[in-house]
């Protein structure tokens, strides 16, 4: 059809650190086919699964307000790992979009 594709809406998801692991697997990052990290697995029993709002396929735009745009895979993974590790906050805020 000729209908315009609606712009994907970003959703803020708060994951409370209520398990020993975050429990997500991500792929992608700058200079890959998937330029922003995408969630490929959510493990049962992890904080992300317990939160109930993160989904496989979600693309992560920001972590605690830190943009992941332009960051290579390892850097994006490090930011997420540090957000989970820090004792400053009992949660992580993910800004995610459904893939378009």
């Amino acid at each position: 059809t000729g209908s315009p594709v609606p712009a994907p809406t970003a959703t803020l998801v708060r994951v409370v650190k209520n398990a020993n692991t975050l429990g997500i697997a991500i792929e992608g990052g700058a200079n890959t086919r998937q330029p922003l990290p995408r969630i490929v697995t959510i493990q049962k029993g992890g904080s992300a699964h317990n939160c109930g709002q993160l989904k496989v396929g979600h693309i992560i735009l920001e972590v605690n307000g830190i943009s992941l745009r332009g960051r290579e895979h390892k850097d994006a993974a490090r930011i997420i790992a540090e957000a989970f590790k820090t004792k400053e906050k009992d949660h992580i805020d993910f800004l995610v979009v459904e893939p378009g």
């Binding site: 991500i26 086919r33 998937q34």
Partner: peptide, 15 residues
């Protein structure tokens, strides 16, 4: 003709 993807696939990290 299909455009070729030249960017590499990403590794996967479990967090």
């Amino acid at each position: 003709r299909e455009k070729r993807l030249t960017l590499p696939p990403s590794e996967i990290t479990l967090l």
